[in-house]
Simulated assay, not measured.
Amino acid sequence: MNERPALDRELDSKTFRDFYYLKEELVDFCRKNGLPASGGKIEITDRIAYFLDTGKIQSPSSSRKRAAEITDIQEDTEIEPDFVCSERHRAFFKEQIGNRFTFNVAFQKWLKNNAGKTYKEAVAAYEQILEDKKKGKTKIEKQFEYNTYIRDFFADNQGRSLEEAIKCWNYKKQMQGHNRYERADLAAIWGAGS
């Protein structure tokens, strides 16, 4: 099977995982089948795969615990477990880093994985993340397959347009298997005059 199947209850989880579906399609499937539709794309995908395998509904992960209240954040304050970005945190980081501060994905991940470290260490980590980004050392997370594909397309095809990259992406995501860029994906634009 090479053509992407419709996302329905008859699909087995292996076939489901072999094809690319938009988050909106996953959420729609969840709503139609009584599954919780909250969470990130990876979490929803796992929930649907479990449902397709077992017919059972899996509850959303309980990782959304209430964050500990921090009344006054100082440099030596420890990062709390189950960190949640808040206006209080944003105000602290803007005061330390300046108005250029944003809760980017890499920094949020660092904060969630480094409970017990100090906010002073968090400020240093933020600066390092920005430095790595400037040097092109950042890794695009799995849930951002489109971004990874487009970046890899341009790395291999300088001078090509975004329209061509998107054409190749749309071609690739309809195929069974992984969604990483391959030179063979250029077949999607060869017919249009390369």
Rank of each mutant, 00 (worst) to 15 (best):
N2Y: 03
E3C: 09
E3H: 07
P5Q: 11
A6Y: 12
D8G: 10
L11V: 06
L11H: 06
D12K: 03
S13G: 06
K14L: 03
T15E: 15
F16N: 03
R17P: 00
R17T: 00
D18Y: 02
D18V: 00
Y21S: 04
L22C: 00
K23G: 05
E24G: 06
E24V: 14
E25R: 04
E25F: 06
E25S: 02
L26R: 10
V27W: 04
D28Q: 09
D28V: 00
C30S: 10
C30Y: 03
R31G: 04
K32W: 02
K32G: 02
N33C: 07
N33E: 12
P36M: 10
A37V: 04
A37I: 05
G39R: 14
G40R: 13
K41P: 06
I42Q: 09
I44L: 10
R47H: 13
F51S: 03
D53N: 11
T54H: 06
T54Y: 05
T54M: 03
G55F: 12
S61G: 01
S62V: 05
S63E: 14
R64L: 14
R66A: 09
A67E: 13
I70E: 15
D72V: 02
E75D: 14
E78C: 04
I79M: 07
E80L: 13
F83L: 15
V84Y: 11
C85Y: 03
E87W: 10
E87N: 15
R88W: 04
H89Q: 05
A91S: 10
F93T: 11
E95F: 01
Q96T: 14
I97H: 12
G98R: 11
N99K: 13
F101W: 09
F101D: 07
T102L: 12
V105R: 15
A106H: 12
W110A: 03
L111E: 06
K112G: 11
A115H: 09
G116V: 11
K117W: 01
K117E: 14
Y119Q: 06
V123M: 08
A124V: 06
E127K: 12
E127Q: 07
Q128E: 14
I129E: 06
E131L: 13
E131G: 01
E131H: 04
K134I: 00
K135W: 02
G136M: 02
I140Y: 01
E141N: 11
K142G: 07
Q143S: 15
E145H: 02
E145Y: 01
T148N: 05
Y149H: 02
I150K: 03
F153N: 05
F153Q: 05
F154Y: 01
A155T: 02
A155I: 02
A155G: 03
A155S: 05
G159N: 01
R160E: 11
S161V: 06
L162K: 05
L162T: 10
E164M: 08
E164V: 01
A165E: 05
I166D: 10
K167C: 00
K167R: 09
N170Y: 13
K172I: 02
K173R: 15
K173M: 15
Q174F: 00
H178N: 09
N179R: 12
R180M: 08
Y181E: 01
E182R: 11
R183M: 04
A184L: 12
D185K: 04
D185N: 07
D185C: 07
A188I: 08
I189A: 11
W190N: 15
G191I: 13
G193H: 07
G193K: 13
G193L: 06
G193T: 09
S194T: 15
S194Q: 13
